[in-house]
Design a protein around this nucleic acid. Structure first.
Lengths: 211, 211
DNA sequence: CTTTTTCTACGGGTTTACCCGTATATTTTA
DNA sequence: TAAAATATACGGGTAAACCCGTAGAAAAAG
């Protein structure tokens, strides 16, 4: 990014009103920014393929896909582009997923104008850009009342192996126990999780980082 | 936390040397801190059950369990306790998991003394406390060369349903297609992912947030 | 030191997943 | 418009998962 060049800022949002709002906000910033607006994520990706973009303000909920996926795609195409999520979506896990996917920050749409601008500038200098409310959300974990069953050492081993695609026979061989024992562990796992089958169980266990 | 009371700081680390180092660091801080040291996570949890603790400096790799789990357990027992991860573990996904589990911050062990102290103080006033190196890591996503196959709309629907524990017959009914078609989609999914079976595939898809 | 949990193991039976090849209509992309 | 990808569907067969009840030995917890 050269000092004599403008900062290229892409805005992606499928609400025309919000797009307009952001547009006028950054046009007012003494023309430091060159704006490009998109209502579709794919169109923005095509643009980034061919043009240098410094910052993307990316809505999370778009009609042609998820901002989470678009963020990842942007960083894959252009690692130096800073991507800021901007959404009404307050869900904690969404924020984390966005950052994990390479986002440089996250802003809630009800943030005031100053905050949005300062987040963009933070991102530009390589800092993590979180609006006040967002960092509060990140620091306020809610522990779901869904009590996950705790697994024994053996059950963890079996579950881990299953999730790696091993069959009961293979697991039995690996753990030096009988196939029948492995199947008993399977049964107990299903009961503990109240899952209908292992597919559901593995999804639960994986999303809850048990394996 | 009252001004006339000391800040209670628990340190959990199974390397005696590091424990000593942190101890002397905070004892030097004009006795603002009252220290409690632990080499086992379980012992620290028992302590927190009975005593108010303002901040925990928690090693991620402990011999009696993972700091990730301990962090979650601490926040479940005592939501107001700030937990700071302190580890040599530089892995990006670990940092995110720690924060998702309720951590207030994360510090690498090679951070200098000042940085550690300032992170603790940041956490005390309710801010996200990341050492410089850590926030750099968070902002440097690496996109694994493992190219995930992109799924068609139908395949996503089928995979989603499988992961919710539905059988092929149930899925067929839900999507108004033949069981045979569902099984064809299953087959194609397995081939696309080069997975041995659906258990493995669901784990891959879930950890990569495809479902 | 007793009680509980965990790990181990058996038999028999039903359901489901998985593998193989094939094939046509529709939709998307080049 | 031609080629490729997608969604649909059939038949036959094997392997694996899942369900039921039961139960002893070892380890952990009280």
């Amino acid at each position: 990014m050269f000092d004599n060049e403008k900062i290229t800022l892409a805005i992606v949002d499928d609400h025309p009103m919000i797009l307009e709002g952001l547009k006028s906000l950054f046009q007012a910033e003494g023309s430091r920014y060159q704006l490009f607006c998109f209502t579709k994520g794919e169109a923005m990706l095509d643009f980034i393929q061919e043009n240098r973009v410094d910052v993307v303000l990316l809505d999370i909920v778009l009609n042609d896909g998820s901002g989470l996926d678009f963020c990842k795609a942007i960083k894959q195409k252009s690692i130096h582009t800073h991507v800021l999520g901007i959404s009404n979506q307050e869900e904690r896990s969404i924020i984390f997923r966005f950052l994990e996917n390479g986002g440089s920050g996250y802003i809630l749409k009800n943030a005031d104008a100053m905050e949005i601008v300062s987040c963009v500038e933070k991102a530009l200098v390589g800092e993590l850009a979180l609006s006040k409310k967002v960092s509060e959300i990140m620091l306020s974990p809610v522990f779901a009342p869904v009590e996950l069953p705790r697994l024994t050492k053996r059950e963890k081993q079996v579950l881990e192996a299953i999730s790696n695609g091993m069959t009961s026979a293979e697991i039995a061989e690996q753990l030096f126990i009988s196939v029948i024992t492995v199947e008993t562990h399977r049964r107990n796992l299903l009961q503990k999780f109240k899952a209908k089958n292992m597919f559901e169980l593995i999804k639960i266990a994986t999303t809850n980082k048990l394996i």
